[in-house]
């Protein structure tokens, strides 16, 4: 029996944790109990970066989380967090499943010892939630919006004129409550689960980016498995994906309905205008952050 410790930073009720547990059952079934995935949610085995390095140190065998964390190794992985990079959810998922992403993943496995087995578990489109209404591009000017403390995000919001305020996620709720920031952005189901609608009454459905969750494994561990065991891992994760993504879509719909019920104003943006604004700065962003030119050109070619 091979034990694989799988770490997640999300709480036990999070869809990624539930899906990983399902995956564990499926893997046990497919391998006749040869592989036992032990799931550790809620950052019990460390935060994202600890788990990424932990896969090489042997503190952990697998990590399930947003693929954008991999930007710590290779800046190109940050690119999929860019605002309005993708036309819609299907476009985003297709890119993650596609050839050029596979190349990035192969490079990662060879150079950094981490293999991304599967990367098509949707995280849902991210939206704004704010203490003052945000509807047009002009509303974005000077908007104090929380961004992850990461260069690509900060540049992405500063270029179109927002006052991007880098802040750890753990401080964001208080920051929004006390007015240090006026807005933050996450998927609607996440915002509802974390009660952000109780302190900020405007949800703007910007649908500004689509990240994917990746199922990652230490390359050394992966190499030690038999072909059947490797296939079982991939097959199980792939089998869960449609169910996972359906659940995310349902959760988002429910979350938005409940927020509306609880007095949140839900706004929609003129998506074409927002898209144009952010796509116009993509070249400058790419140069500043340092994405590979080939990748940038390929992504731009996919824009409608």
């Amino acid at each position: 029996e091979t034990v694989l410790k799988v770490g997640l930073i999300d709480p036990p009720a999070h869809i990624d944790v539930v899906a990983t547990e399902r995956m564990a059952e499926k893997v046990a079934e497919l391998t006749g109990g040869e592989i036992k995935m032990e799931v550790y949610p809620a950052a019990q085995l460390g935060f994202a970066n600890d788990m990424l390095s932990g896969m090489k140190l042997g503190t952990i065998e697998m990590f399930v989380g947003a693929t954008t964390w991999l930007g710590a190794f290779d800046t190109d992985f940050w690119v999929t967090g860019t605002l309005y990079l993708f036309n819609d959810q299907d476009h985003a998922r297709a890119f993650h499943e596609g050839e050029s992403y596979q190349k990035m993943a192969d490079r990662l496995a060879a150079e950094h010892g981490i293999r991304v087995l599967v990367r098509n578990w949707d995280r849902g489109p991210r939206n704004f939630i704010s203490t003052r209404p945000v509807e047009t591009i002009d509303d974005l000017q000077g908007l104090k919006i929380r961004v992850p403390p990461q260069e690509s995000w900060i540049v992405n919001f500063q270029l179109p004129g927002a006052a991007a305020t880098p802040m750890p996620l753990s401080e964001t709720f208080t920051g929004l409550q006390q007015g240090i920031v006026e807005a933050t952005e996450q998927a609607s189901n996440w915002l509802y689960a974390n009660k952000y609608h109780t302190i900020a009454k405007n949800l703007t459905r910007t649908n500004h980016n689509y990240e994917e969750t990746g199922v990652m494994i230490s390359e050394a561990v992966y190499q030690s498995l038999t072909d059947e065991q490797r296939d079982a891992l991939v097959a199980a994760a792939m089998e869960i994906a449609p169910w996972h993504n359906e659940q995310v879509a349902v959760q988002i719909e429910e979350a938005e309905a409940k927020m509306a019920e609880e007095g949140v104003t839900i706004l929609d943006v003129d998506k074409a205008a927002w898209q144009e604004q952010f796509r116009a700065i993509f070249d400058e962003l790419s140069t500043k952050v340092g994405y590979s030119p080939d990748l940038v050109e390929e992504l731009k070619a996919g824009w409608n």
Binding site: K5, G46, F47, D50, S53, G54, L57, G58, T59, P168, S170, E171
Partner: peptide, 20 residues
């Protein structure tokens, strides 16, 4: 015997990596 001892050094550094 489940975790390697070096996780202690990792945790020590991370515990203080906090803005508050």
């Amino acid at each position: 015997g489940k975790l390697p001892l070096l996780i202690v050094a990792q945790r020590l550094a991370n515990a203080l990596d906090s803005f508050p």
